[in-house]
Design a protein around this nucleic acid. Structure first.
Length: 433
RNA sequence: GGAGGGGUGGGUGAGCGGCUAAUACCAGCAGACUGUAAAUCUGCCGCCUUAAGGGCUACGCAGGUUCGAAUCCUGCCCCCUCCA
């Protein structure tokens, strides 16, 4: 292993390694290393924030080491202490299984399946009895656990800490003992849990694991940690164009971090990018496009990445209509009727004193034209949450029909009309009659 | 067992009898601008309806006081903290 490779493993996409020297020794010993990665099956989706660590696993796999993936089917029932939601619904065995499958499907987009061993916590915790639990809990004190940042804060602020939450680090630590982990991977917020693992291993006479802490990846808002609950995430199974678009919505300041943490772009090149950004010799947009391309490439393929790139240029930058527009099949006749029945048809062709004839007219019109109010139409097409929202959008001149901004409320639609709401909601209307 | 604090719109969190569909911040949406879905600026941001305007529902739940209640009273439910 050359210096550059070693540096990449130790520095790129790593917040901290505890203890780095020991890890290097382990690495140089030439023996296969057991890399522990746990996952909580209550949250099966993998997004780019998780990918940072997974890439690290992959790097190590590529030089011959082995990943032990632990399905936390017991810890999932506790819920990792986050302070926000203490009580979580218990998952059924089927849900856990389904989530685990989804997780692994995503997990192995980055990690090498052939060099991975999957273990379930229930293999060992399923056999635990009260005596085992007591024995485990007796090894640590409350004070030790209150040292954990999250616990301490909540304790000081007089916020609740569930007893089961104290169990979480213990269970996670015991996993390390059970599989005899050499290295455990986690986000920086996992430091405490991983360190408990180190201690517990020592107590039972094992060599303590090394701990790899991954830096936090900011989400698409550019401020907070990427997470599903904040809805600022980019999932690994996102469609190519969406993924590309989400990357483009990153603030410019996040570009370099993303290159380092979630792409394979060479360090030297990233250095070059940094310089270019610093002396304004490049438009950040160009770098961001490259970033988006690299990321899509990683989770889809070259063609998808190119397509997404072209799509972005055309649709977003030049405001052209996309090549393929999602079709909305609707029945003109029934929509005309619906509008008629809403009781405020402006068209005088419909004689209100003669409802039967009017109804016939509706049907006649319905063959080739749709006369309807925009809020009703958009609501029916599920392009808006409510008609009120549609009215607001109308006021904001955000609705376009066949290239013209819709100003009035009532519109006439023909087969193939293209309706655009804001920038991204575009539909081609197809008459299904 | 005792004492206290609290439940408000997607989130945080003001309001503590009328000026409150409800401050502020975040998120979201739209428009403008831009070589970015960045940044910035402006507007919107419960539902139904309007040409303007109006109506309805909402501040844990159920009642009550009042011309009028998120705001006061009663009961209930739930959450939290402290002391023992």
């Amino acid at each position: 292993m050359d210096e550059k490779q070693l540096k990449r493993i130790l520095k790129r996409g790593v917040a901290d390694i505890i203890v780095e020297e020991e890890f290097v020794k382990l690495l140089k010993s030439g023996k296969p290393i057991r890399l522990k990665q746990g996952f909580d099956p209550s949250r099966p989706d993998i997004h780019l924030g998780h990918v940072v660590g997974l890439k690290k696993l992959r790097q190590l796999q590529d030089i011959g080491h082995k990943v032990i993936l632990i399905v936390g089917d017991w810890t999932a029932q506790i819920g990792d202490p986050s302070g926000a939601s203490i009580t979580r619904p218990m998952l059924t065995a089927q849900e856990v299984k389904a989530n685990a499958e989804t997780y692994m499907e995503h997990f192995f987009k980055v990690v090498d399946r052939d060099k991975t061993e999957v273990r379930w916590q229930s293999e060992w915790f399923g056999k635990f009895n009260l005596a085992d639990v007591i024995k485990l809990t007796s090894k640590f004190t409350v004070a030790q656990f209150l040292a954990r940042d999250d616990f301490r804060k909540r304790f000081e602020e007089q916020k609740p800490i569930a007893i089961t939450e104290l169990l979480y680090p213990l269970l996670q630590a015991y996993d390390s003992v059970e599989i005899e982990a050499d290295v455990e991977f986690g986000g920086t917020d996992q430091m405490f849990n991983c360190l408990v693992g180190r201690e517990l291993q020592q107590m039972v006479g094992q060599r303590p694991q090394q701990v790899f802490l991954m830096p936090i990846l900011v989400g698409t808002d550019g401020k907070q940690k990427m997470s599903k609950s904040l809805d600022n995430y980019i999932a690994v199974d996102e469609p190519a164009k969406t993924m590309y678009g989400k990357v483009m919505s990153l603030p410019d300041e996040a570009i370099i971090d993303y290159f380092e943490l979630v792409t394979d772009v060479d360090e030297d090149e990233i250095e070059e990018f940094k310089k270019q950004m610093a002396n304004n010799s490049i438009n950040p947009m160009e770098l961001k496009k490259r970033l988006a391309f690299e990321i899509v490439l990683q989770f889809h393929d070259a063609k998808a990445a190119r397509d997404a790139d072209v799509h972005f240029g055309k649709v977003v930058q030049n405001k052209e209509l996309p090549d393929e527009i999602e079709e909305a099949r609707i029945s003109f006749i029934s929509f005309n009727k619906l509008f008629y029945e809403s009781g405020r048809l402006a068209n005088k062709a419909f004689d209100e004193n003669n409802p039967e004839e009017a109804e016939e007219n509706v049907v006649l019109l319905g063959k080739d034209k749709l006369h309807i109010s925009i809020p009703l139409l958009l609501e029916q097409m599920k392009l808006v949450k409510s008609r009120s929202e549609a009215r607001r959008l109308l006021n904001q001149r955000a609705i376009e029909l066949d290239g013209n901004t819709v100003l009035g409320k009532d519109v006439r639609i023909i087969d193939g009309s293209i309706i655009k709401v804001g920038k991204r909601r575009i539909r081609k209307i197809v008459n299904s009659d």
